[in-house]
Design a protein around this nucleic acid. Structure first.
Lengths: 91, 91
DNA sequence: GTTTCTATATGCAAAAAATGCATACCCAAT
DNA sequence: ATTGGGTATGCATTTTTTGCATATAGAAAC
């Protein structure tokens, strides 16, 4: 499922036009992003937690050539599913 | 930031009551969850992709006793940040 | 205010991620 | 409808993550 299809579903569930549903959805993702930029985690009960994880610089390898490569430190957003979320998929 | 604080922000950004903002937010997470149950991935452009990942069974260990334990296969929801999302945090 | 949920911390083995890059593909926006 | 761009895939190897049991503390939900 892609964003467009999701927006259609939301449009129905929220009783909004597609344009409004999309705006609403974008507002939410942007709000989460902003929160992640300032704070460093966003915890959503019953769903999961978004965290910014710092990765140290390290030595990698180009799998094609085998050549060693220096990899810069970076940050990435991690999502940790909540307990309830795991249970949905494991029974 | 927790869910309550997020809802307050959304309430302002979406010009909704807190109760409505929370309902809207819950509707969205539930819609994503439902989609994940049926389909197995939800792709949100500019944000990321939620996927159900299968984990193989394997041998674990009780960290308290050191005793070996068989861990059953399971499924978990993975979030893969989109390129745009990575860039936000790496510059 | 009570109760449920989550983070943490522990050691360790196995699974998974990450890396560059080409290609194919699918989606998004014009 | 077309096109540009992001994304999946495969590859080899090393680093990182995961997840086990369990108690506790702190936070959040109701």
């Amino acid at each position: 499922m892609n964003k467009k299809q999701l927006v259609v579903k939301l449009s129905g569930a929220l009783n909004l036009s597609k344009a409004d549903a999309e705006r609403t959805f974008d507002t939410i993702t942007n709000t989460i992003l902003d929160a992640l930029k300032g704070d460093d985690s966003v915890k959503i009960a019953g769903f999961g937690t978004y965290k910014v994880a710092k990765r140290k610089a390290r030595v990698g390898r180009n799998p094609r050539t085998g050549e060693q490569i220096q990899i810069a430190a970076s940050q990435k957003v991690k999502f940790l599913p909540a307990k309830a979320l795991k249970e949905v998929f494991n029974r």
